[in-house]
């Protein structure tokens, strides 16, 4: 156990050389490599972080865009629905109007046809009834009936109201024509005298009278003084009947409407 100082100095030199060698070949390169790797990893991490950040931003943007698109789509859809609804209403209204127009036209047409038909029917039926009545009454007319007609007429003359009588008198005085009396049948001179007397008594004293026969009067008698006229005739009744029939048809058709 001894210390060889030459060896010691040699070993010191050796050790210092080894320190330099290892520093040159081991520590520096290895540490540099590790540092570089760390730096690279840090850079990569930083890049990854940035990329993630960007990706998040982009995702957010896309999300916003998607939301916007959704909203727009909703808007468009709702607008389209509204439009469709409105159009539907308009079309429905139009269709309804058209239908009602057509119906009105049709109803008018029907009404017109009905009116025409009714008019036709009215006139025809009135005419027919009148004709039947006339025929039946003209066949039925005899002396007794004529007597009755005359007495009814006289009764009417008697019961004339003041105004009518005044108007008659005035009409007779204004016209110079004689008082005309139409009958459907031939009158006896005695009957004529009775009538003339009644006229003188109730209307104008001493007026001239003329007698005519008229088939149209139909079992009746008529007194004409200018525009004024007093009569009793079955034709009047028949005219009234015709009028009544027409009124009846008119009321039925109006109630049908």
């Amino acid at each position: 156990m001894s210390v060889d100082w030459i060896t010691v100095s040699a070993q010191i030199v050796n050790f210092l050389i080894l320190v330099w060698l290892l520093k040159r070949f081991l520590y520096q390169p290895v540490i540099r490599a590790m540092d570089r790797r760390e730096q690279r990893i840090a850079e990569q991490l930083e890049q990854a972080r940035q990329r993630e950040h960007q990706a998040q931003q982009q995702q957010q943007q896309y999300q916003e865009k998607a939301n916007e698109l959704d909203r727009q789509r909703e808007d468009i859809l709702s607008k389209a629905k509204e439009n469709a609804e409105q159009q539907k209403h308009e079309l429905m209204d139009q269709a309804r109007e058209e239908v009602s127009d057509i119906r009105k036209q049709w109803q008018q047409q029907v009404e017109q046809e009905k009116q025409a038909f009714l008019k036709n029917l009215r006139s025809k039926s009135a005419g027919a009834i009148q004709a039947i009545g006339r025929k039946a009454l003209s066949e039925l007319a005899n002396v007794e009936l004529e007597e009755q007609v005359i007495s009814s007429f006289l009764l009417r003359l008697k019961s004339l109201d003041h105004n009518t009588r005044k108007a008659l008198t005035q009409a007779l005085q204004e016209s110079s024509e004689p008082l005309r009396i139409h009958t459907a049948f031939e009158l006896d001179p005695a009957v004529r005298g009775r009538i003339t007397r009644a006229v003188h008594e109730h209307i104008v004293e001493g007026i001239e009278t003329e007698y005519f026969e008229s088939e149209q009067l139909l079992c009746g008698i008529e007194l004409n003084a200018g525009a004024q006229r007093i009569s009793w005739s079955l034709a009047d009744y028949l005219d009234g009947l015709g009028k009544q029939v027409e009124d009846a048809f008119a009321s039925t058709s109006s109630s049908n409407r």
Partner: peptide, 23 residues
């Protein structure tokens, strides 16, 4: 000692000749 030095240096040099900085 020289042998040890040589070995250490050689190994270091051989390995650090091609150092990878990647993973």
């Amino acid at each position: 000692t020289w042998l040890v030095m040589a070995l250490l240096t050689l190994i270091s040099w051989l390995v650090t000749r091609r150092l990878s900085t990647g993973t």
